[in-house]
Amino acid sequence: MNKKDIVNILFCGRGGQGVLAAAEVCGWAAVLSGFHVKKSEMHGMAQRGGSVESHLRFGKEVFSPLIPKGEADFIIPFDGEEFIRLKSFLKNNGVCLVDDLNRGKGALKGQGRYINVFLLGALSRYLSIDKQFWFEAIEIVFAGKNPRENKGVFLKGREQGGGTKGDAL
């Protein structure tokens, strides 16, 4: 947690990649854990393949719905180019899941559309949110659809995730 005890996570990618659903799951998991949560998204042309980003912030009391530049603890990129566009949001020793994106793509093969859940699993390694709440959040956001696949992929991400420190990028 950063100096203000607020966790800042930036999800980014393109419309249709599952970026917003991932942020929604993480948001719910934080809500269920009892944090004050704000989740902001930019998705004007999301369905048409445009840039999509979601800022998720949680802690005791969150003010700004946007993460100030240079203060993201985590960046969860679904797309290399979009990550480059937003790299400057990452704080000095922040963590980026860009390697996990590639790892996930390799590990999932036929289940490519579950990449967002894989990345959540990888992210969950860093957050003080109970596994139980992650599962519950997945259930809420995906309305109970494909529970077994979602859980399986989440756990895979949780096992295989590694992250990359910002200064190594």
């Binding site: 004050h36 949560v37 704000k38 989740k39 902001s40 998204e41 930019m42 998705h43 719905p65 946007l66």
Partner: peptide, 9 residues
């Protein structure tokens, strides 16, 4: 937009 499309508990 920033309020309309921000979610909060």
């Amino acid at each position: 937009t920033r309020i309309a499309h921000t979610k909060e508990n």
